[in-house]
């Protein structure tokens, strides 16, 4: 007898609707938007590839914002790009989450004194999890995603009000 049958002898279990759909479903299928600007993009890409295998968290890259739950802002955000990021964020359906990956997206990083770099993506869109590093290791990014899953677990309402 397998584990599941042992836990659920009658194949029935009871839960709240929002627990099942919102929490359990969402946290295990965070489809992220393939959105990367700079150096962190390569680490994001390698996290999704052979060795680190992002797929095991249920995270699949999507090319369009309309199918994504999560935006990983990987890299420097310039003023020219910031307007685009705002628009892409607006095109994502609720519920939506943002991970800011790397020092540049967190606060400007090494380019904080540059004339063309926005000092932190949180100036234009709300950020749920910040992952430090320049660039962060794949392990750090994965921990950031796990932190986001914990956050989703603790969300009080079924549907978040539009922010």
């Amino acid at each position: 007898m397998g584990l599941l049958e042992h836990k659920l002898p009658e194949n029935v279990f009871f839960t709240k609707l929002d627990q099942l759909t919102m929490r359990w479903g969402l946290r295990n299928s965070l489809w992220y938007m393939l959105f990367a600007t700079a150096c962190c993009a390569i680490e994001l890409m390698q996290t999704g590839m052979s060795r680190y295998d992002f797929d095991r968290f249920g995270m699949i890259p999507r090319a369009t914002p309309r199918q994504s739950d999560l935006m990983i802002v990987a890299g420097t955000v310039t003023y020219k790009m910031a307007l685009r990021i705002k628009r892409l964020y607006g095109q994502m359906p609720e519920p939506k989450y943002v991970i800011s990956m790397g020092s540049c997206a967190n606060c400007g990083g090494g380019f904080v004194h540059s004339y063309s770099v926005l000092n932190g993506v949180d100036k234009i869109i709300p950020v749920d999890v910040y992952v430090p590093g320049c660039p962060p290791r794949p392990e750090a990014l994965m921990e950031g995603c796990m932190k986001l899953m914990e956050k989703i677990d603790q969300e009080p309402r079924l549907v978040r009000s539009a922010r």
């Binding site: 003023y79 910031a82 307007l83 904080v112 004194h113 540059s114 004339y115 063309s116 926005l118 000092n119 100036k123 234009i124």
Partner: peptide, 19 residues
Amino acid sequence: PLRKDYRPAPEYHGMKIEY
């Protein structure tokens, strides 16, 4: 920007330019 005496405008499309 690459002129030595360059000072950016205070903001760009509502975003404050810190320089």
